[in-house]
Design a protein around this nucleic acid. Structure first.
Lengths: 323, 323
DNA sequence: GACGCTTACGTTCGTCGTAACTATT
DNA sequence: AATAGTTACGACGAACGTAAGCGTC
């Protein structure tokens, strides 16, 4: 058995059961990949791929099981390389963080600034995507850490730790009529056009209004916090923002509505691929971003020991400002 | 990187940092092993072994981490082979159970008889050892399942599931004076010489008497249940036996003392190496031996998901007779 | 005929064992 | 001298790419 053979299997699956695409992705000729696969099938004594008319078209049940283990082995091979780099060049390497606009723009900058100062040799990459994509990037090994609100479905092989509760704000233009109201209710919010954001912000407002039997009048959808703020400033509507995205000093044309009682804070997760080796600088990043998280807990959770998430959630600090 | 290289590393460690022994164990020449190691050290860019005066004498910190991951990879490689065998020859293979005398002789025979009938193609091996050795065999990959009472220290990489509570009996010769007592107390037991067994039986009696401020008068130590019974039958003393080891039909010369109130039942564990692939027949064996254990729980526990052991323990049946 | 995989074959690279060498005890 | 590990070298085998073959769309 060979690591190359396992890589061939995984790549063929990743490329949608195409040997030729896998060969290209691995910079090899097709016949090589073809043989690697037949060789390991011969050695294990089972068909891994379902062949239909001389063409590969799916995994056999045995193949499903093989794939799972093969992926774990390849991950561990990557981990060995990371261990090597860790001990040969402690403070140089790469750290890829997948997150949404809100965190890339508002909650992460101070941490990243500090981190970049401390680890000039680490190439830090920020991938700004949707929460689901962020998790998928991490699960697929293309990113180290995902920082995003909870996604509906947990990918397996992914360890998610709650790190903050995110409070929400509703903002309005300084001369917006709603500011004359003494108390804000969901019903009053629902009267005005709303600029919803792409990800969790949208869900938060929709669900909250649904609880009050209302639906938002969506003026504009698919905006991020910055876009939302621009439209709100022009008086076109209200927007729900993560509290961290409101900057009193810069957002002069905006006013906050007092809505803590209307919107439940969302849980912000940090997701890491299970069994992924975390370089020392990655741990350092984590402890800077979430100083209340014990690194030992992180290490254990990633190693596969199940951690008492409920207890972690209980004492989660609320994320309000980035600094 | 190569699986061979990883195997070389693990074998050298296993052989107590001896390259030559590792070479022999792997049926290779020394220079080959030597080179494999230097090659992977070169590729990872770190020293794995500590070298002192041209001689290997320990793992570096990096080596410790590498070893851990390398072992996991080798285990997974073994798992791939097992998956192959599972799907190519479902009902043939090997099953190695490491357990103590009591279970080999008393609690397992009916299950094994049934199993052997159902899976004639499976070579079943029973390794009769101490509880600690049983766990070590499983942790080292030399056995599939360990069945034994809890050991003081949990080996890492080992998943232990509680399967039964083992009740204890004290037996005496039919004409033993203690049988004239109306109620049995620890103090009364402590008056007589005791034949202690090698493993948990010894601890049980010692700890129980210690709670009553007594120490056992040990007449003979290191016996198993059968040896104990023979001496007890000759009137040489009392013995603490697992309830399952007392056979009323055969043990005519022995009498039971009513001691449920004196000896706390011990928890019997089933231990499996974490991430070890369990063949279908192994699962079948488990469900026969412990029908109250959900196979899904077993599968999850072995896969690394932590299971609520406390809840499992609560509703543990008491093991009294084997059938 | 284009696409996708397999078979065939010669080259290249890697792995292994023997043997000679070096260092430690 | 004996033990433990490294270096050197030649032989064998595995992996790769090119080219040709086969079956499907």
């Amino acid at each position: 058995m060979n690591i190359r053979q396992l890589r061939a299997i995984c790549e063929v699956v990743k490329q949608g059961m195409k040997i030729s695409s896998a060969a290209e992705a691995l910079c090899k000729a097709q016949p090589g990949i073809s043989r690697q696969i037949r060789e390991i099938e011969g050695e294990l004594g089972v068909q891994i791929f379902h062949r239909l008319r001389n063409r590969i078209c799916g995994l056999t049940p045995a193949g499903e099981e093989v794939l799972q283990v093969a992926e774990r082995i390849l991950l561990d091979v990557e981990n060995l390389r990371a261990i090597g780099r860790e001990h040969s060049s402690h403070d140089t390497g790469e750290l890829i963080i997948a997150t949404t606009h809100t965190h890339a723009r508002y909650s992460l900058p101070p941490v990243i600034e500090q981190f970049a100062g401390d680890f000039p040799g680490v190439k830090l990459t920020l991938r700004q995507v949707s929460p689901i994509q962020a998790c998928e990037l991490v699960a697929g090994g293309s990113a180290d850490i995902a920082i995003c609100t909870e996604t509906s479905r947990q990918l397996d092989g992914l360890v998610s730790l709650p790190v903050y509760r995110m409070a929400w704000d509703v903002v309005a233009a300084a001369d917006h009529p709603i500011l004359r109201e003494r108390t804000i209710t969901l019903a009053k919010i629902a009267r005005w056009p709303i600029i919803t954001q792409t990800f969790s912000g949208k869900r938060v407002i929709t669900e909250a209004l649904a609880r009050a039997g209302r639906a938002p009048q969506v003026l504009l959808n698919g905006a991020d916090a910055d876009v939302s703020k621009a439209y709100v400033a022009r008086g076109l509507g209200l927007a729900v923002l993560a509290k961290v995205a409101y900057e009193p000093g810069r957002d002069r044309k905006l006013r906050l509505l007092n809505v803590q009682h209307l919107f439940e804070p969302s849980v912000l997760n940090m997701s890491i691929r299970r069994h992924h080796y975390l370089r020392a600088y990655a741990m350092s990043f984590i402890s800077r971003y979430a100083p209340h998280l014990s690194l030992d807990v992180v290490r254990k959770a990633v190693a596969g020991d199940r951690v008492d998430l409920a207890r972690l959630r209980e004492k989660l600090p609320v994320l309000t400002t980035a600094d």
